[in-house]
Amino acid sequence: MKICFVLNKIETEKPATSVALMTKAHTKGHEVYVMGVGGFNFESGGIITLNTKQVPTGVSTKSPKNYLELLQSPKAKNKIIVSTDLDVLFIRNNPTEEGASRHWAEQSGIAFGRMIQQQGVLVLNDAYALSNAFIDKLYFEELPKSIKPASIISRKKENILSFWEKNNKRMVLKPLEGSGGKNVYLIDEHEKNINQIIETISSDGYVIAQEYLPAVKNGDVRVLLMNGRVLEENGEKAIIKRVSSKGEFRSNFKQGAVADSSELTKEMKHIIDLTAPKLIKDGLFFVGLDIVKDKLIEINVLSPGGLDRFSEIDLPDFTTTVIEAIERKLYYKEKYKGQLSNKVLATMY
């Protein structure tokens, strides 16, 4: 298959989930193209071309790190391809990681993804689903109340302070659009700078205040779902516990958390069972859930990660399962010849 991965920028990419998936597709002999979100070109008449880079098919790569080194080196081929020559467009750029000077980049991947999807190319996750879930913390609020902590989303300081009072003067504050644990604060009764923190976060947009869950001190669990099911390979499940570093309540790997193993508990299964129907209906192929005990605290639909961390707990990287699932979708697409929508194919097992 011909598959193109859309990243924020090739130059700044790290050897994490996206690169692991590219590497596996490459080693399986597929034509893998990679582009930054600024590489789309639209011509009158509806032609869309993509400025891509490629590690030539047949070039041996020892690891995702080695693949990325080749991709970022002069050895990679620059190639302009027509969108309709692709079989798959995999949108993997994370809009929340774009800086103030690149606001244009935040929605470009999804917008061009919708156009390419209309041309008949398989787009993952479904581009219209990504549009609807673009602010994933708002999409999170569409899920059943019973599996979520109490929360409020506002830019009004009085509303947030009232929520704090109602929750025994303990809450977690974070920007509505953000990732990696950046600008996330635990606010308790001893916090003297609460007004300043609220003003700082709200200066960049909406603030989400969330009920503090005491169990978070033991870390959280990232569960990767594919087609609405827990991602599995060789009988192992893509579940990883993120244990916070000492003195840190945030469990993000970017904030120094370390990986640990975790079983699939009945509480996790209940959350997945309630979340999966919506993900399947909406066409969200690859999704990350962050769970603390019996509560879902965050959903990641734009660029879920973690595949690069499983080796730390002696689990497979699960990339074979993901790439084989995409291969099956193309098989179904060919056999049904237009009868199955992109949304249906995106979550078809």
Rank of each mutant, 00 (worst) to 15 (best):
V292E: 08
A127Q: 02
N41T: 14
G256I: 02
E199S: 15
S83R: 08
L284N: 10
G39E: 08
K266D: 01
Q72N: 08
A257I: 03
G58V: 08
L122Y: 11
S101W: 00
K329P: 00
G180S: 09
D126K: 09
M115V: 10
Y349S: 14
E324P: 06
E211T: 10
S303R: 12
K246I: 11
L274V: 04
F42G: 05
Q196S: 10
G205K: 06
R102M: 11
N168A: 13
V223Y: 03
R170C: 10
M35K: 05
G219N: 05
Y336D: 12
M115Y: 14
S18D: 04
H270D: 15
V32Q: 00
R92C: 07
F163R: 10
I153D: 00
G205V: 01
A276H: 06
L284H: 10
G45K: 14
N41G: 00
K254Q: 14
E97A: 13
M268L: 07
F253L: 15
I297F: 06
K237V: 10
S311M: 01
A127D: 00
F42R: 08
V55F: 11
A105N: 13
K53N: 03
A276S: 15
E232M: 14
T23D: 03
I135G: 00
Y332A: 09
D87I: 05
A257E: 09
K2I: 04
L130D: 06
L71A: 07
P74K: 10
V230H: 07
V243Y: 07
I110L: 14
N218C: 01
S262H: 09
W104P: 00
F285N: 10
M226R: 02
A257N: 10
G46H: 11
K157L: 03
W104T: 04
Q118Y: 11
L122P: 01
I297D: 02
L50V: 01
R222Q: 01
E199C: 01
N93T: 05
E263A: 06
V287Q: 11
N125T: 11
P95I: 15
N168W: 04
S303F: 10
E233G: 07
L176D: 02
A238P: 13
K137P: 09
F163V: 02
G45S: 11
K24F: 05
S83N: 13
N167C: 00
I323W: 05
G219D: 12
E141C: 10
I299K: 02
G235W: 12
L7H: 11
V207G: 06
L225M: 14
P15E: 08
K246M: 03
R328G: 03
Y128A: 07
E327I: 13
P175A: 05
L138K: 13
T200W: 07
D314H: 15
S179W: 07
D188C: 09
F40Q: 08
T61H: 04
R328P: 00
T12G: 04
H103A: 12
I116M: 05
D273G: 03
E191R: 13
K293C: 01
T27K: 12
D317T: 10
N8S: 09
V216C: 00
L315Q: 15
K148T: 04
G205D: 09
Q72E: 05
V55L: 05
F310Q: 06
I240V: 13
D85K: 02
N167F: 07
F310T: 12
M226V: 12
E106H: 10
A105E: 14
D85M: 00
A346H: 07
A276F: 05
F112K: 06
